[in-house]
Simulated scan of single mutants.
Amino acid sequence: MKLIAIGDNVVDIYKDRNEMFPGGNALNVAVLSKQSGAEKTAFIGIVGNDTEGDHIVDTLKAMEIDISKIRRAVGESGKAYVDLNDDGDRVFISSNKGGIQSRLKLKLTEDDYHYIGGFDILHTSIYSSLDDELPTLKKMIPLSYDFSNHFTDEILGKVCPHLTFAFLSGSHLSPEEIDELFLRIHSLGTPFVLVTRGGEGVSASIKSEVFTQGIVEANVVDTLGAGDSFIAAFLTNYLQQFPVKESLRMAADRAARTCEVHGAFGYGKQLIP
């Protein structure tokens, strides 16, 4: 199985540790899919020409992610600042809104399209500014998309007709609301809908058949990136012909393992004072 992820990338800056970790949904899914057993993964995105961008690129090379199509641009890489709340949980406190990636917007070329066609699945996210490319991309490759918890009827109506896999964060939703969401997204043409629910696990509607998966126990250090791990592992295992239930279980286990390290997959680097 070969996965390509396109779009958002940041460094997550942990203020309490004075340390930065590579992150961003699309970037994380590329790395975590490789860790979950994908034959090959690639990442395309715009990275700044700063120290943070260097760390992103160096890490992707070390993880053996294909970045032959990555863009470096003059400007600031995406940064998200993370701290601890009163309960000791990590919370995002501010960001630079994606940095140079969000300002320039990624423009795919004919060469990019040819390259993308060599993969089995393309994953992107609501933070990747790739929505206008989806009608073209769906003609050549199945699409996976993470909405996080920022979905509206308007966004669903624009994006879901082009998707094979939709991932959403729904810990704030009741079971009845999740059922309604399944029906809405299926009606728009997306056959695979998976809703992560924090400590309640995952609810999934696979071609209108509903499945549930509980969380797996972990020695929790940091929950950042757990949802991205779930996405990466589910896609990787399901597309390698594992049954749905087993793919969900393996994805939940991978998410638990992510909670046992800082950052989505480690590779922290101390900030220069």
Results as ranks from 00 to 15, higher is better:
Lys2Leu: 05
Leu3Lys: 07
Ile6Tyr: 02
Tyr14Met: 08
Met20Ile: 10
Asn25Thr: 15
Leu32Cys: 06
Glu39Tyr: 03
Ala42Leu: 07
Phe43Ile: 06
Val57Thr: 14
Ile65Gly: 09
Ile67Phe: 05
Ala73Gly: 00
Ala73Val: 00
Gly75Pro: 04
Gly78Asp: 02
Ala80Met: 10
Asp83Asn: 12
Asn85Gln: 12
Asp86Gln: 15
Asp86Leu: 12
Gly88Ala: 07
Val91Cys: 13
Ile93Pro: 09
Lys97Gln: 14
Lys97Glu: 15
Ser102Gly: 02
Arg103Ser: 15
Arg103Gly: 05
Lys105Phe: 06
Leu108Gly: 11
Asp112Ala: 06
Asp112Leu: 08
Gly117His: 07
Gly118Gln: 13
Gly118Thr: 12
Phe119Met: 01
Ser125Phe: 14
Tyr127Asn: 13
Ser128Arg: 04
Asp132Tyr: 11
Asp132Ala: 15
Glu133Thr: 07
Pro135Asp: 12
Met140Lys: 14
Ser144Gly: 09
Phe147Met: 04
Phe147Tyr: 09
Asn149Glu: 14
Phe151Arg: 01
Lys158Thr: 11
Phe165Gly: 02
Leu168Tyr: 09
Ser169Cys: 11
Gly170Lys: 11
Leu173Glu: 01
Glu176Ala: 15
Ile178Leu: 13
Leu183Trp: 00
Val193Gln: 05
Thr196Leu: 04
Gly198Leu: 03
Gly199Val: 05
Glu200Lys: 15
Glu200Phe: 08
Gly201Asp: 10
Gly201Lys: 12
Gly201Phe: 11
Ala204Gln: 13
Ile206His: 02
Val210Gly: 00
Asn219Val: 10
Asn219Pro: 01
Leu224Gly: 00
Leu224Met: 14
Gly225His: 10
Phe230Lys: 12
Ile231Gly: 01
Ala233Arg: 02
Phe234Cys: 09
Asn237Lys: 14
Tyr238Leu: 12
Leu239Gly: 01
Glu246Met: 11
Arg249Asn: 11
Arg249Gly: 03
Ala252Asp: 06
Asp253Cys: 03
Asp253Phe: 14
Ala256Phe: 02
Ala256His: 09
Arg257Leu: 12
Arg257Val: 11
Ala264Thr: 02
Phe265Arg: 03
Gln270Pro: 00
